[in-house]
């Protein structure tokens, strides 16, 4: 039984904001299917009363004083921007 279809792979690629070619969809479907099939071995374990672990350390809210501090320098930041104008990062039009 296949766990994942080409259609699902296209949907996931869209959610992940990845452009994929037909060839890639085909390849990723096969590979992801194998990985997910492998991952389903976890179903051998009864975890109905097991609490999930998201983090190994026993720490909860980590708070600090709300003090202002200088942020990153605008000129410095813009040096890494692919495109900028008048101190702002430029992107393609968002509103049609």
């Amino acid at each position: 039984m296949t766990r994942i279809s080409e259609e699902q792979v296209r949907h996931v690629a869209h959610l992940a904001r990845l452009a994929v070619t037909d060839e890639e969809v085909h390849k990723f479907t096969e590979q992801l299917d194998a990985i997910i099939t492998f991952a389903e071995q976890l179903n051998e374990l009864d975890t109905s009363n097991v609490k999930p672990t998201s983090h190994v350390l026993d720490m909860k809210n980590v708070l600090r004083e709300d003090k202002s501090a200088p942020g990153l320098d605008r000129e410095e930041v813009l040096k890494n921007a692919p495109d900028h104008q008048d101190g702002q990062i430029r992107v393609p039009s968002i509103i049609e």
């Binding site: 991952a39 976890l42 374990l45 975890t47 097991v50 609490k51 999930p52 672990t53 190994v56």
Partner: peptide
């Protein structure tokens, strides 16, 4: 089925 399940198994491994 996948993410939460894996987090639970992580608890068992720990």
């Amino acid at each position: 089925a996948y993410y939460k399940k894996a987090q639970q198994v992580r608890t068992l491994i720990k």
